[in-house]
């Protein structure tokens, strides 16, 4: 029987968006059966138009080309600039885009559950999400996770 990987994806920034998609797609390539439960901010990673951003603010470990005090990082436009620079760097280094990893996960039959409570909480519209996902709650997650060989909270 195939091994199982259960992931909870709870964060929606560009940096935090990578681990669930990288691990899920790789596990699928290793013949795991994979399920990701997207909750809270992680749910935004299921929108048709991905708009994940990265912020150096409150993220002192982020490598910067020049040292930058918080006071500068909070200026308007800094977040967009950091996101643009990070995406460019990833492209230069041959790191897949989030869109690509996400569609690779879908091609590999990674099962995606969207947290219904979060959908209600933030008034998200189901038509804003990608196709092929299911909606459910914590009990739905445990049904799969209780039999998983690896469970991750991200």
């Amino acid at each position: 029987m195939a091994k199982k990987l259960a992931i909870i994806a709870s964060k929606g920034t560009l940096d935090w968006a990578y681990p669930p998609f990288i691990l899920a797609s790789t596990a699928a390539a290793l013949d795991y059966e994979v399920q990701i439960f997207f909750t809270f901010y992680g749910l935004t990673l299921l929108k048709k138009e991905l708009d994940a951003k990265i912020s150096p603010l409150g993220n002192p470990a982020m490598p910067m080309p020049v040292p930058m005090p918080n006071l500068v990082q909070m200026l308007p436009g800094m977040e967009s600039m950091a996101t643009m620079m990070m995406k460019q760097k990833m492209k230069d280094k041959g790191v897949a885009s989030l869109e690509e990893l996400r569609s690779l996960c879908q091609e590999a039959d990674v099962k995606v559950i969207a947290c219904q409570m979060t959908v209600d909480l933030f008034d998200f519209k189901k038509e804003d999400f990608i196709d092929g996902i299911e909606f459910g709650g914590a009990a739905t997650f445990f049904e799969f996770a209780s039999e998983a060989d690896v469970s991750l909270f991200i």
Binding site: I22, S25, T26, A29, K93, G94, V95, A96, L104
Partner: peptide, 13 residues
């Protein structure tokens, strides 16, 4: 060539 983790593995699969 030029691909970074996990793309080489995914392409091979």
């Amino acid at each position: 060539r030029g691909l970074n983790c996990p793309l080489p593995i995914l392409r091979v699969k």
